[in-house]
Amino acid sequence: MSEVIRLCTVRETPLSVDEVFTAVQDSSAGGVAVFVGTVRDHDHARDVTALSYSAHPSVERELRAVMEKVAADYPVRGLAAVHRVGDLEIGDLAVVVAASCPHRAEAFAACRALIDELKAQVPIWKHQTFADGGDEWVGAC
Protein backbone atom coordinates (compact mmCIF):
# COMPACT_ATOMS: atom_id res chain seq x y z
CA MET A 1 0.00 0.00 0.00
CA SER A 2 2.70 2.51 0.88
CA GLU A 3 3.85 2.67 -2.76
CA VAL A 4 0.68 4.65 -3.49
CA ILE A 5 1.65 7.26 -0.89
CA ARG A 6 3.64 9.57 -3.09
CA LEU A 7 3.90 12.67 -0.90
CA CYS A 8 3.35 12.92 2.86
CA THR A 9 4.81 15.95 4.60
CA VAL A 10 4.29 18.94 6.85
CA ARG A 11 6.35 22.04 6.08
CA GLU A 12 6.85 25.71 6.87
CA THR A 13 7.28 26.73 3.23
CA PRO A 14 4.47 27.61 0.79
CA LEU A 15 2.51 24.73 -0.73
CA SER A 16 2.09 23.91 -4.41
CA VAL A 17 -1.06 22.45 -5.96
CA ASP A 18 1.03 21.43 -8.98
CA GLU A 19 3.45 19.47 -6.78
CA VAL A 20 0.60 17.51 -5.18
CA PHE A 21 -1.22 16.92 -8.48
CA THR A 22 1.97 15.71 -10.17
CA ALA A 23 2.73 13.37 -7.26
CA VAL A 24 -0.50 11.39 -7.69
CA GLN A 25 -0.57 11.12 -11.47
CA ASP A 26 -0.71 7.53 -12.67
CA SER A 27 -1.39 6.08 -16.11
CA SER A 28 -4.00 3.71 -14.65
CA ALA A 29 -5.95 6.49 -12.96
CA GLY A 30 -8.94 7.92 -14.80
CA GLY A 31 -9.73 10.42 -12.05
CA VAL A 32 -7.74 12.74 -9.85
CA ALA A 33 -9.41 14.72 -7.07
CA VAL A 34 -7.59 17.56 -5.32
CA PHE A 35 -8.66 19.49 -2.23
CA VAL A 36 -7.04 22.82 -1.36
CA GLY A 37 -7.64 24.41 2.04
CA THR A 38 -6.90 28.14 2.26
CA VAL A 39 -6.67 30.62 5.11
CA ARG A 40 -9.87 32.65 5.19
CA ASP A 41 -10.40 36.13 6.61
CA HIS A 42 -13.15 35.12 9.04
CA ASP A 43 -14.29 32.29 11.27
CA HIS A 44 -17.61 32.04 13.11
CA ALA A 45 -18.56 35.59 12.01
CA ARG A 46 -15.31 37.04 13.45
CA ASP A 47 -12.61 38.72 11.37
CA VAL A 48 -9.33 36.79 11.43
CA THR A 49 -6.18 38.93 11.45
CA ALA A 50 -3.51 36.27 12.04
CA LEU A 51 -3.25 32.51 11.90
CA SER A 52 -0.56 30.02 12.85
CA TYR A 53 -0.41 26.23 12.67
CA SER A 54 1.71 24.06 14.95
CA ALA A 55 2.15 20.30 15.00
CA HIS A 56 3.18 17.52 17.34
CA PRO A 57 6.53 15.84 16.51
CA SER A 58 4.62 12.69 15.49
CA VAL A 59 2.68 14.57 12.82
CA GLU A 60 4.16 12.89 9.74
CA ARG A 61 3.84 9.42 11.27
CA GLU A 62 0.17 10.11 12.07
CA LEU A 63 -0.44 11.56 8.61
CA ARG A 64 1.07 8.47 7.00
CA ALA A 65 -1.18 6.23 9.13
CA VAL A 66 -4.24 8.14 7.89
CA MET A 67 -3.02 7.79 4.32
CA GLU A 68 -2.42 4.05 4.76
CA LYS A 69 -6.03 3.66 5.94
CA VAL A 70 -7.36 5.55 2.92
CA ALA A 71 -5.18 3.41 0.66
CA ALA A 72 -6.64 0.27 2.26
CA ASP A 73 -10.23 1.48 1.91
CA TYR A 74 -10.18 2.83 -1.67
CA PRO A 75 -8.63 1.68 -4.97
CA VAL A 76 -6.11 4.51 -5.02
CA ARG A 77 -3.23 4.68 -7.46
CA GLY A 78 -1.66 7.70 -5.78
CA LEU A 79 -2.14 9.74 -2.59
CA ALA A 80 -0.52 12.99 -1.55
CA ALA A 81 -0.96 15.29 1.44
CA VAL A 82 0.98 18.39 2.44
CA HIS A 83 0.10 20.67 5.37
CA ARG A 84 1.64 24.01 6.31
CA VAL A 85 2.84 24.95 9.79
CA GLY A 86 4.00 28.32 11.06
CA ASP A 87 2.54 31.77 10.46
CA LEU A 88 0.26 32.05 7.43
CA GLU A 89 -1.40 35.00 5.69
CA ILE A 90 -5.00 35.31 4.58
CA GLY A 91 -5.29 33.47 1.26
CA ASP A 92 -2.29 31.19 1.84
CA LEU A 93 -2.64 27.49 1.11
CA ALA A 94 -2.87 25.63 4.44
CA VAL A 95 -3.34 22.08 3.14
CA VAL A 96 -3.37 20.31 -0.22
CA VAL A 97 -4.42 16.67 -0.61
CA ALA A 98 -5.06 14.56 -3.68
CA ALA A 99 -6.10 11.06 -4.66
CA SER A 100 -5.94 9.32 -8.01
CA CYS A 101 -8.13 6.30 -8.71
CA PRO A 102 -9.40 4.36 -11.72
CA HIS A 103 -12.68 6.31 -11.73
CA ARG A 104 -13.78 9.82 -10.66
CA ALA A 105 -16.27 8.71 -7.98
CA GLU A 106 -13.55 6.73 -6.22
CA ALA A 107 -11.12 9.63 -6.50
CA PHE A 108 -13.64 12.05 -4.98
CA ALA A 109 -14.44 9.63 -2.15
CA ALA A 110 -10.79 8.88 -1.38
CA CYS A 111 -9.83 12.57 -1.43
CA ARG A 112 -12.71 13.46 0.88
CA ALA A 113 -11.81 10.64 3.27
CA LEU A 114 -8.19 11.80 3.26
CA ILE A 115 -8.94 15.42 4.18
CA ASP A 116 -11.64 14.47 6.69
CA GLU A 117 -9.43 11.96 8.50
CA LEU A 118 -6.44 14.31 8.37
CA LYS A 119 -8.51 16.99 10.10
CA ALA A 120 -9.86 14.50 12.66
CA GLN A 121 -6.72 12.47 13.45
CA VAL A 122 -3.50 14.31 12.64
CA PRO A 123 -2.06 16.40 15.53
CA ILE A 124 -2.03 19.85 13.93
CA TRP A 125 -3.40 22.84 15.83
CA LYS A 126 -4.55 26.21 14.56
CA HIS A 127 -4.16 29.44 16.53
CA GLN A 128 -6.35 32.28 15.25
CA THR A 129 -6.19 35.92 16.27
CA PHE A 130 -9.29 38.03 15.69
CA ALA A 131 -9.77 41.73 14.91
CA ASP A 132 -11.68 42.15 18.17
CA GLY A 133 -8.51 41.26 20.11
CA GLY A 134 -9.57 37.72 20.98
CA ASP A 135 -7.90 34.52 19.93
CA GLU A 136 -8.59 30.79 19.94
CA TRP A 137 -6.87 27.46 19.51
CA VAL A 138 -8.64 24.96 17.29
CA GLY A 139 -8.01 21.24 17.90
CA ALA A 140 -6.93 18.94 15.09
CA CYS A 141 -7.13 20.84 11.80
Rank of each mutant, 00 (worst) to 15 (best):
E117M: 08
I90H: 10
V95A: 03
V95D: 02
A107V: 03
D92M: 05
D132F: 00
L88P: 13
H103F: 09
F108W: 11
A80T: 11
K119M: 06
I90D: 01
I115W: 13
Q128L: 05
L114Q: 03
A131P: 11
I90T: 08
A109Q: 13
C111L: 07
E89A: 14
A98T: 00
T129P: 03
L88A: 15
D92G: 13
V97H: 11
F130W: 02
V122D: 09
L79E: 15
V95T: 10
H103Q: 15
L79Y: 15
L118Q: 01
C111E: 11
E89K: 14
A81T: 08
A105N: 13
L88G: 15
F108D: 03
P75A: 14
R112G: 03
S100W: 06
G91H: 01
R112P: 05
K119I: 08
F108E: 04
H103T: 06
D116Y: 02
V85D: 12
A109N: 14
V85Y: 06
I115D: 10
A80F: 07
G78S: 09
P75T: 13
D92W: 05
A120Q: 03
G78P: 10
G86D: 01
P123I: 00
C111Q: 03
A98C: 01
H127V: 03
H103D: 11
A107K: 13
A81G: 02
G86R: 04
R104Q: 13
L88K: 15
W125S: 10
L79W: 11
S100D: 10
E117P: 00
A94D: 01
R77A: 09
A99M: 07
A120P: 00
Q128H: 02
H127M: 11
R84V: 11
I115V: 15
E89D: 15
L118C: 00
Q121K: 04
L79C: 12
P102A: 07
A99H: 05
L88I: 14
K119G: 04
P75D: 14
R112F: 04
V122H: 02
P75W: 11
A99S: 09
L114T: 05
A113N: 06
R77M: 14
V96Q: 04
H83M: 02
V95G: 02
L114N: 05
I90R: 07
V97N: 07
L114I: 12
Q128E: 05
A110F: 06
G86I: 01
R112Y: 06
D132Q: 06
V122F: 07
H83C: 05
L93K: 10
S100M: 12
A120W: 02
R77S: 10
E117V: 02
G78M: 06
L93N: 10
R112Q: 14
P123R: 00
P75F: 12
R84M: 13
V95Q: 02
A99W: 03
P102N: 05
V122W: 06
A80N: 12
I90C: 02
G78H: 11
P102I: 00
D87S: 14
A110R: 13
C111Y: 04
I115E: 07
I90E: 09
D132S: 06
L88M: 15
P123H: 01
